[in-house]
Simulated assay, not measured.
Amino acid sequence: MTEPTPTPDNASTYAPWEQFRRPYVRDLAYVLACPNVLTKWLNLAPPQNTAAITVHSASFWQAQFDSYLTRLQELDTTLDYQQLTRYLLTRPSPNRLGFHFEGLLSFWLTDGYAHGLHPYEIIASNVQLYQGKQTIGELDLVLYNHHHKLTEHWELAIKFFMGSAPFAPENWVGINSNDNLQRKMVHMQTKQFCTLWIDTKDHGRVKIDKRYAVIKGRFFLPINHNDFVYPDWLAISFPMHRWYDRQDTANLAALDLATLRPAHYVEWFTKRDFYDDPQQPLLWSQSELPMSGLYFDHDKPLVIYPEQEVLVEAKR
C-alpha cells in the first residue's frame, strides 16, 4: 500500500519521533527521521569556482533512523538516557536551537559509531577558519566515512521557515525576517564550503573529499493557501504545517484561543506534554490577538506572525 503524501493538516501522522516519551530522545529521533529539506542542492550563489555540494536523500535519513531505532528505544527506557542528557547539557549554549541541533547530531554520530550503527567517525568539529589572524567562520563537522574511505564536511542548519507564493527558496522566511532559505544556502556555498584542507588536532592536515548540506527543521504554509504544489527541490516528507497572519481575524477566529498554547523554546523540535496545563491562565483575552510565535493547537504546531513582514521579505 502506498503511503499518502503528507500535507500540513496531517503532518503529525508522519512523525515517528512521537513514539518516544523522553524529550531529548524524541528530539534525537526527530533529527534523524526528519529528511533534509532539499532533494538536491540549488546553486544560488554568484558564479565562482566552488566544489560540488551534495544533500543526503530522504531514504538515507530513514535508513539512519531505522538503524538507530533499537538504540533510541534503549535511551528512552534505561539509565542510558543520562548519557544523552549529560552530553547535551554540557555543550556550549544548549538552550539555543542551532546548538541543540548540532549537539543531537553529534551525539548520534559519536554514539552510533561506537555501537557500530553507521560508518561516520567525527575527526573534527567547529573548525575555525582564519584569514590572516581574523576568524571568518567555522566548519560544523568533519567526518571520516569508513565505508567509502572519504573525508566529509557536513554543514548543519535547523530552520523553521514560513512560506509565501511563489514558494521559491527566497520566499521561505524565518521569524527573523532577515533569514531565508536562499540566503542560508548562499552563505554555506560561499563561506563554509570553500575550504579544501583543514588542520585537525588528532588527525593532522586532511583534505575534504565531499561536502554535505544538512538542512532540517519545519516549514509553515499560509493558512489560506490550499493549492500548494511542492517544488522539485523540496522533500515532500519534510514536516509541513500552517502559519496564520496575525491580522487575519477570520481564520484566527476558527482557532480555539482558550486551548492554544505558546511553545517553549525547545518545542520547535518536538512538543513537551508536561508543559500542558489546563489551569494555566491565558496570556491574552478572547478579544485580543496572540503575540507572534509558535503555538500548539492541541498537538499540532502552528505559527502566528504578521503577514506584512513575511511578504515584504519575500519580494526582495
Rank of each mutant, 00 (worst) to 15 (best):
S12G: 08
V37F: 09
T13W: 08
R26G: 04
P23Y: 06
Y14I: 11
C34D: 07
P8V: 00
R21E: 13
P8R: 14
P35F: 01
Y14S: 12
D9I: 05
V31Y: 10
C34A: 05
T7L: 11
Y30A: 09
Y30I: 06
A29H: 00
N10D: 15
D27H: 15
P35A: 02
R22C: 03
V31R: 06
D27V: 04
D9K: 07
R21L: 11
Y24I: 07
D9E: 13
W17P: 01
F20Y: 15
D27P: 08
W17Q: 09
V31D: 10
E18F: 07
K40L: 13
P16Y: 00
Y24Q: 14
P23A: 02
P6E: 08
N10T: 03
Q19I: 11
A33R: 03
C34E: 10
A11C: 14
Y30K: 09
D27F: 10
K40Q: 15
Y30P: 04
D9M: 14
L38F: 13
Y30N: 14
W17K: 00
P23C: 08
W41V: 13
V31W: 03
T7G: 13
A29T: 05
T39S: 09
D27K: 13
P23D: 00
V25L: 11
P35L: 01
S12F: 08
P16F: 00
D9N: 15
L38P: 10
N10G: 03
P16R: 01
A15P: 07
T39L: 06
A11N: 07
Y30T: 08
V37A: 13
W41L: 04
P35C: 03
L28T: 00
A11T: 04
D9V: 03
V37I: 15
D9R: 05
N36A: 11
P6M: 02
P35N: 08
A33E: 06
P23G: 04
W17Y: 03
N10E: 03
F20C: 04
P8H: 06
A29E: 04
T13H: 09
P16T: 00
P23E: 09
L38M: 12
V25F: 12
Y14N: 07
P6T: 00
A33C: 00
C34V: 04
P16W: 01
A29R: 06
T39M: 13
W41Y: 09
